[in-house]
Structures are given as structure tokens and as C-alpha cells.
Amino acid sequence: MSLAAERTVVVVDDDRTLTRTLVISLRSRGWRALVAHDGATGLELAETARPDVVVLDLGLPDLDGHDVLARLRTWSQTPVVVLTARHARAEAVRALDAGADDYVTKPFSVDELLARLRAAVRRADPAQDAPVVETGALRIDLARGRVHREGVEVRLTPTEWAVLELLVRRRGHVVPTAEILRAVWGPAYGTESNYLRVYTAQLRRKLEADPARPRHLVTRPGRGYVFDP
């Protein structure tokens, strides 16, 4: 069963064309999608439907999206992915500080948004995707956030772990550099590839037998990075 199977998402956005398109995409991938075109209705749906995740626009006709988020957080920890046309970094920081789990700006890729919804649900319910990955000399416990190499625990910084966890959860698939940057450093990032080079180099020194010729943490030039099990 896929992660999205039987999952419920509430989409709160007053753009009816966008919500129609998004609902079609969500339902085709196994999500139960409910729509609210204003903040008050969105809060009601969040309470009655008890969704697994909420997609929230900031520019609503009755309430500002930040107010909707603040009210929701007084009684619920349901993951919230903000989807908005507001590109200012200050808006993203404000939303994330207020309890949003992710921040996506319009126009957006439906596939990327779906990936972010899946990630938000996983983080809220780690048991849904918390295997122990064992490959070569490495043992990576995604549930406990621990890594062992040849039986010895390897200490990682929070940022190193965030990069490794993302790649391991998508193991075997190339993850674009911009996607990693936004997921680890925040939605305002996407071009600072030097950050990622530094942290992947640190991870290779800690985890690879030969950091100069990595077996697991592989760069795909012009595309991104892959964890090759």
C-alpha cells in the first residue's frame, strides 16, 4: 500500500481552477481530497474530517492564512503545507515559525507538492516510513535517527542527518539539488549548491570507506544526489 492510500488532505484555497486541478491529481494518486474556499470552512473541515495533512493558501477571502494557521495550531498538530503566491522570505519564515511544516510557492510542480505532502505525513507519523536500512558496512535507523558504520555509532550533526535521511528515504532515486536545499535549509533556498557540497563531503568522510570514490552518497552532475544502496 502506498503512503497516500486512504490518506485525507484538506485543501484551503479560493482559486477554484487550481483546486479542481489539484483535487484531480490528488485523487488519481489515492488521496481523499476535500476542499474549502475560505479560512472558516477550512478550519471546520480540519476539525470534522481530521485530515492527515492540510494544504493552506495565505491569501484567503475571509481570513489571512497566517490567522488560519494560528487558530489551527491552538488545538491540532496536523501537518500544514502552505501553498501561496507570496514569495517574500519573511512570509515563509513567519509561516514556518507559526507552525507550518513546509512552504511552497506558486506556480508549483504538482509532483513536487505531492512529494512534500508525503514527507509531511511521514514526519508526523514516522512509523509509516521508519525502516532500518542496512547496506554494506552501514546501518541507518530512520526511526531513531542513528547511523552505525561497522558496528560503531557515527555522530552526525542535525544538518548532516537531515541530508542523509532525505536521500535514504528516496534511496535509489536522484533527488534534485534544489529540492534537498529547500527541504533541509528552508523554502527560500534552492540555488546554494555549495552548502550541499560541504555537507555531502562531510557525510562521505564519516560514512564512506573511500570518500574520494563514494559508494553510497553519489553525485549526479547537473541533476542532484542519490543514496545508492
Rank of each mutant, 00 (worst) to 15 (best):
P61K: 08
T84S: 09
A188C: 06
P221S: 14
A49C: 05
L142T: 08
E91P: 02
R32V: 01
H148E: 15
L113A: 04
V198A: 12
P158S: 11
G136P: 08
T78K: 04
L83A: 00
T177S: 11
E153Y: 00
E150Y: 08
A212P: 03
L34G: 03
G65Q: 04
T135K: 06
R170W: 04
L22Q: 10
L96R: 08
A188D: 13
P176R: 10
L113R: 04
A88F: 03
L117T: 02
A46G: 15
E165T: 04
A92G: 15
L166D: 12
P126I: 09
R223G: 04
R116E: 07
G59K: 12
V81I: 11
A212Y: 04
A120T: 10
N194T: 14
W185E: 12
V9R: 00
T84H: 03
L96Q: 08
A40L: 09
A127F: 07
D62P: 08
L138W: 09
S28Q: 14
A115V: 05
R155L: 03
T157Y: 05
A115F: 01
R86V: 15
L181A: 06
R171Q: 15
D13C: 09
Y195C: 13
H66Q: 09
R155E: 07
G39D: 01
R116D: 06
E91Q: 06
G224I: 03
W31C: 02
A70C: 11
L114G: 00
A4P: 12
Q77R: 15
